[in-house]
Design a binder for these strands. Structure first.
Lengths: 325, 325
DNA sequence: ATGAAAGCGCTAACAG
DNA sequence: CTGTTAGCGCTTTCAT
């Protein structure tokens, strides 16, 4: 900036003004500065800017996995909005691990972000302490709680699990198996499903857990386990994701088991392919793009010091009935 | 740091040393400092650190889309390695748009990253200029070129397209349709495929282009177009992604068209589900995890000032024959 | 092994 | 509208 200023014949501070608020500089000066910038190929140093102003224009975000479309699409819509407002996003993966999350929160906080986005509402006490201590706005997404660190936007996994249980009971199923990936929120849905299913007169569901990430292969393996280990013949399969549900359907088809005739299948997430496979998947829809946008707009209000409004934004879910159940 | 130092009874500089290299501080002092840090909840300011040291421990990355598994899995393996070495990743999406990419490169450069990862090898002249001017290591992935900005790791899309053409000709197909998403690299594969297919004695392929992102729905629509608009009845369909191929297969099944009997289908990417759907997809496999790792290790060598080694790392591709062709 | 001091490249008063 | 000046919180010599 000093160099640019010298070439343009003004002080370094004037160059700073020209860049941050062109209207505070005379048109002629501005033009000279612009030329000097072009001539030198000057790229402003945001690091120095952040240190001096204690505003980084950086938002950091933590998700369990970036290859999981549920989280990546949420971050995509969130990022697009924040980027329009001049923020950049530093993104990391926790791998569904609370310890890793805590370490990452500390690492992210050291970059002095203007705000932070977290997936889920369950964090270590130490993590909460650091976050609160940092004083920055924090938005927790993809779940809700009465006690957010700052505010949250999501839906109730317990409610969703219960709703699916009532839905399949009304369809007449009294036997069920749950296929669940290694995700705390998925387990909460499963438990709520099981409890409500029994309360509504069903038998206790068989629980099949998938190690590792959800995948079509895991779904196929889960159905094999339900069939061969648990002797599950007919009823409903509630999967923690559409990917798993698709795997269950594929395995059933290969084995000549009719869906939904013999086996009804319910997924979760309403991913793109859910409506397009055969039979189309009955699933639970959460508007992830809207969720990302709401998180962004609410965060912006907080960043601009406006009235925070409600601190628990429940976007709900919707059961979409298609061919598989 | 000053506060921590005062509490520990040492100077601020000693606290800095304790944090960056504990061995340069006596064990007793170190312990006192550790206690002071715990007592105050001190979180180091990486912004100030970066300004003072001109090392940010930040790598920025640009991908066309974070919701596309091809790119997100690549970034995932890249990030994991870089994170182990103490780097964080600032990630943005270009949306397959060169102008957007240029703007993002400038924005990213202002954060003074230690290195940058770019998807593809085609960038605007201005982008190249900024990158070279910045003097930082730049790795271009998912494509190769003889003239990388710095170095690249990927494979030849032209070679891959040609290889598929030879492969399906050997299978005996002389009619083909290409289903291509809106991606410059996919178009390059398509063109190479078409040229080689004709050279090898096939008829000129019918080209169906999908607007927007690849999806199962787009694949289904593409087959409808091939069938109804172009009167394509039998032959091979070369899709620019497995998602599209899956859509083509689904639509064929709904219409009672036999795969691979009437229609052979070839995908691209070998995504998780490719081997798991019915029939399993014949596709082109590129080891994305390995690609991310190689990009990371090569970058690290450059960051540590070691011999850059080869500047064009070709990881190749492999045609995986399964049931669909 | 530790302290003192000089920046890193900006922003933000404060003057004029 | 523009220049001067004092930091922002660290790292990095240079001494001791």
């Amino acid at each position: 900036m000093t160099t640019v200023g010298r070439i343009a014949g003004v002080s370094q501070a004037t160059v700073s003004r020209a860049l941050s608020d062109p209207s505070r500089v005379s048109p002629e000066t501005l033009e000279k500065i612009r030329q000097a910038i072009r001539a030198t190929g000057f790229v402003p140093n945001a690091v120095a800017g952040a240190l001096a102003s204690s505003r980084s224009n950086l938002i950091t975000a933590l998700v369990p996995s970036i290859t999981n479309i549920v989280y990546s699409s949420l971050i995509q819509s969130f990022s697009r909005v924040m980027r329009e407002w001049g923020y950049q996003i530093l993104l990391s993966e926790t791998g569904f691990d609370a310890e890793e999350e805590e370490a990452l929160i500390a690492a992210h906080l050291s970059r002095r972000p203007d705000a932070m986005l977290l997936t889920g509402t369950r964090h270590s006490p130490q993590a909460r302490k650091m976050l609160i201590g940092s004083g920055i706005p924090v938005v927790e997404v993809w779940d809700i709680t009465d006690t957010p660190i700052d505010f949250c936007v999501g839906f109730s996994h317990v409610e969703a699990g219960r709703a699916v249980a009532r839905f399949v009971r009304e369809l007449g199923h009294d036997r069920a198996v749950t296929v669940t990936a290694n995700d705390e929120r998925a387990r909460r849905r499963r438990d709520a499903f099981a409890e409500s299913f029994v309360q509504a007169g069903g038998t206790t569901p068989v629980a099949v857990d998938c190690p590792g990430a959800a995948s079509l292969a895991a779904g196929r393996a889960a159905l094999v386990e339900a069939l061969e280990v648990h002797g599950f013949g007919r009823g409903v399969v509630f999967c923690s994701s559409d990917l798993l549900a698709h795997g269950v359907v594929s395995e059933a088809q290969v084995r000549g088991i009719a869906v939904p005739g013999d086996l009804a299948v319910v997924g979760f997430g309403d991913q793109d392919f859910a409506a397009m496979v055969e039979p189309p998947l009955t699933t639970v829809r959460v508007d992830r793009a809207e969720l990302g946008r709401r998180a962004a707009t609410a965060l912006r209000a907080r960043l601009e010091g406006n009235d925070p409004g409600e601190t628990v934004i429940d976007l709900g879910y919707r059961i979409i009935r298609r061919g598989s159940a």
